[in-house]
Amino acid sequence: MTRAARANQRSHSRPQGAVQSKTHWRDRLAAWQAHHSTCAIESLLRLLRTPLQSLLTWLVVAIATALPATLFVALDNVRSLGYQWQDSSQISVFLKRDAAADAVGQWQRQLGNHTGVAEVTLINPEQALEEFRQHSGLGDVLDDLEENPLPAVLLVQPTLSASQGEPLQALLQQLQANPLTDDARLDMLWVQRLEQLIELASRIVFFLALLLVLGLLLVIGNTIRLTIESRREEILVVKLVGGTDAYVRRPFLYTGLWYGLGGGLAALLLLATGLHWLSDPVASLASLYQSDFRLRGLDIISSAQLVLLAGLVGLAGAWLAVGRHLSAIKPR
């Protein structure tokens, strides 16, 4: 027996009289889909008909979404910066100021042949001073100095096998022990501390995001509650002419979804604007540290996830409000 036939039989077996099925299930399915798209479009149009009020709600959602998203992006950037450093695990060897150039050159060549060293770069005091002059903006002050205060630095890049644990420590000790060395520093230590800080910060961001999501639920829930109140008459009539709870609920759920999605999109816009505004200063700051680091925004997938998440929060907020307030509106 086909489904249609079964449905037919069911409708025939229902009690006759005031209650009879007047629409075929296939028509009803089509009508259900049509009502979904109608609700989706109409609730959006309704929002656009009160632009100021909708804009305010969208902004609230956008700010509450953009805040944790910004922190997330910032953390992500700091972390990637950390990885860059960690990958390099570079050792900076500050040379004694009275170290002879010949001896330094010889040591550099020696290190170049060392099995644990991938690359050695010498930055002499003049180069260091020039870079400092370019980027610090203290050029005039530097001109007043009688002598260059900066030491020469050897940047030692360990090979991959020597870039961790024991071999790295051994290399570091070896470099420190050299009579030309004033001080040798491993950036790793820094990076490890940074990692722990990032871990702590990401938990704080997560907690903050949770709070803001909760706030969003309340904001959207309250907005939907007001919408429900303003359409009380309509809800009563729809209930009286036989609208199911789902039918009555639908437009409000879509309204919540639109608030969420719109807010999410606006949040992306805020985020992109902020990143654009920061990107130039960050780039010049990075070049100060001889890095080609650039601010990273959200990629397409993360952006989509953010908007979707905001949409879901909107939907959930609407659901909360609808669950609480729609059942309270009963025809009397």
Binding site: P15, Q16, G17, A18, V19, Q20, K22, K239, L240, V241, G242, G243, T244, D245, A246, Y247
Partner: peptide, 24 residues
């Protein structure tokens, strides 16, 4: 009892479907 049905047993979404057959 309306249309042969005891209305006591009509609950939830049944109410909506029931009302579709009554004009007010």
């Amino acid at each position: 009892i309306v249309g042969g049905r005891n209305t006591e047993r009509i609950r939830g979404n049944g109410i909506a479907h029931y009302r579709r057959d009554i004009g007010v």
